[in-house]
Amino acid sequence: MSSPSSTISVNTATSTPGHRVLVIARHEYRAAVRSRILIVLLGILVVATAASVFIASAEYAGRLADYQAYRAAAEAGGVARIAPSPLAPLSLLRGAMEYLEIIGAVVAIALGYLSVSRERSNRTLPLLLSRPVTPTELAAGNLLGALGVIATLVAVTAVVAMLCVGFIGHDWLNGIQLFKLALAYVAAVAYMGVFYCVGAIAAAKSKVAITGLMIALGIWLVVVLVLPQIGDTLDADNQIPGGLFAALGLGHDGEVRILAHFTTYETIRTSIETASFAKHFERFAFAMTDVKERFRSLSLPDLFFQVRTDIAWILAYSIVLVIGLLRAFRKQPTVPQGGQQ
C-alpha cells in the first residue's frame, strides 16, 4: 500500500514552535484519515455504536409509549400524584460508551502505532529531525493531530447516538443532558488520547515497530478487558447465578452487615478495579449518561463530587502518558529496524 503522500512543509526560518507543532498536527490528521486500516476500524466503531444505540432506542420507544399512555390515563382519571418517568434517555448510550471503551482504545492504539511507524518506514523521520524540529515538537504535533482525529470520531458517534435517541427513541435530549453527554465525550477523548500515547510509546520504544503494536495490544487487553473482569468476578454477590445474597435470603441490609466483615477483601477487589484506567473512564461516563440509577437524581456539582476520584485518575494517567510520549520520541530510533513495519 502506498503511504500517505501528505508532506510537512515547515518554513524553519520564520516559523515558531507553535506553528511547527500545528503543521505537524495537520499532517498527522491528514495522514490518519487517509489510512485505510484506520478508516476500517473507525467504521467498525461507528457502525457498532450506532447499532447499539439503535437497538436500545427501539426498545426505549416502546417503554416511553407505555409510560405516556399511563400518564394520559392517569391525567384523564384525575389522579393527583402521577409517578415520574423512570426512563433515562441518556442511559441508551451505555453501549456506545462501552464500544468507545473497548474498540475506541484499539483505534487509538492503532493511531499511535501508525504515527511512529509511518515516519520510520517511509524513512522521513531522519529527514524531519534534520530540520530544526525538536522531538518534543514532533510528539506534541502528532498528539495534537491524533486528538483532532479522535475528537472528530467521538463527535460523529455522539451526533449519531443523539439522533438515534431522538428519531428512534422519540425522546430528544435537553440542555443539561447534552452538557452531560458532552462531558462524557470529552472524557472519551482523554481516554482514547491515553491509549494513543500507549500505542505511540510502545512503537517508539521498540526496535521493530510491530512488536510495539503487539505489546500495546497486550496492555490494552489487560487494562480494558482482564482487570475489570477480575474485579467483577471477585464481587461476593456475583459468585452464584442470581446473586449470592439472594440465594441466602438476605436483603440489602443483611448484605451490608455481612460485607462489613469483608473490608480487606473488598479493598483488594476495588484496588484491582482501580488499577484499570478503563474502569475510571467507565465510571465517569456511566455517571454522566445516567446509566447508574443512583446518579440520576444528582445535580452536576454532586455528580462531580461522586466521580472526583475517577476524574483525578483520568487526569493523572493523561499527564503521565503525555510525559512518557515526549520522552519516548526523544529516544526513538530514526530508521526502520528488523525488516518489518
Partner: peptide, 23 residues
C-alpha cells in the same frame, strides 16, 4: 501488503466476532 495492516485487520475481525456480532 503491510504486516501492521495485517495485524490490525485481524484485530478488527476479532473485535467484530467477539463484540459486534453478539450485539
Amino acid at each position: 501488503r503491510r504486516t501492521s495492516l495485517a495485524l490490525l485487520s485481524a484485530m478488527g475481525v476479532w473485535l467484530v466476532i467477539t463484540f459486534a456480532v453478539p450485539q
